[in-house]
């Protein structure tokens, strides 16, 4: 049975047609793909402008500022005006004479980010760094645990050889150094392989979801 036409269904079909238009690039570049691409860019830009105003500037800046102004709350009004002034300083970059204004706010942002990054180094990275110092022999209740000992030894080997691979302070070309670097390169390749495999998995997941959407909305939905 053919489905009844509704606004919701029309929107879903339009979305499904857009997906097919975008995927048509796999065949060759064409007008349908370019139309969908431009529509997406236009919609995304419009959406961003709307979100910036309605989700941020309006509730977090305009309403508190105007309310403070009306009620005569001086700190609120001054805060709102200060935020506007600092925000406008970003546009100083467009004129040579006012470029320094942009550097002023950029300095504040970089300073705040650097402060947070230093704290994050201690709370996030240090525990990870400490955990790399593992004993190659794991003993529990007087017994040497074989498997954890093997994995820890391999882990230590990987850490040391990868560090040697990136050791550029002075030139070392002896066969032992070359071998250590080759082992380090092997572990790096293992790491990059894991990254690449996971990248493929995510990209494939996006494709699967979109193809299923077309099947569900466009093909099954049409006869619902």
């Amino acid at each position: 049975m053919i489905a009844e036409i509704s606004w919701e269904r029309t929107g879903a079909w339009l979305a499904a047609i857009s997906v097919v238009a975008v995927l048509s690039l796999l065949w060759r570049p064409n007008a349908a793909y370019r139309t969908a691409e431009h529509a997406l860019l236009g919609l995304a830009t419009g959406f961003l402008v709307s979100v910036t105003w309605f989700e941020f500037l309006l509730p977090k800046w305009w309403i508190p500022l105007t309310e403070s102004w009306r009620e005569g709350v001086l700190p609120g009004a001054i805060g709102g005006m200060a935020a506007l002034t600092l925000g406008l300083c970003w546009y100083g970059v467009y004129f040579r004479k006012t470029e320094w204004l942009m550097r002023l706010v950029l300095g504040i942002v970089v300073g705040a980010s650097a402060g947070q990054a230093i704290r994050n180094q201690f709370t996030q990275q240090m525990p990870v760094l400490v955990s790399t110092f593992r004993s190659p022999v794991v003993i529990e209740e007087g017994q040497v645990l074989a498997w954890p000992s093997i994995t820890n030894t391999l882990f230590l080997l990987a850490v040391v050889t990868v560090l040697l691979y990136f050791f550029f302070t002075f030139q070392q070309d002896s066969p032992r150094w070359r071998m250590a670097r080759a082992v380090g390169r092997f572990w790096l390749m293992v790491g990059f392989g894991a990254y690449f495999g996971n990248t493929i998995m995510t990209r494939l997941a996006v494709l699967i979801e979109r193809v299923w959407f077309v099947v569900d909305e466009f093909i099954r939905g049409f006869f619902r």
Binding site: P127, V128, V130, Y195, N198, M201, T202
Partner: peptide, 17 residues
């Protein structure tokens, strides 16, 4: 997380963070 972001997270898992 999405699979693409998971690789660097395993050390955080082993530290318990």
């Amino acid at each position: 997380v999405a699979t693409i972001s998971s690789t660097p997270l395993y050390p955080f898992l082993s530290t318990g963070n």
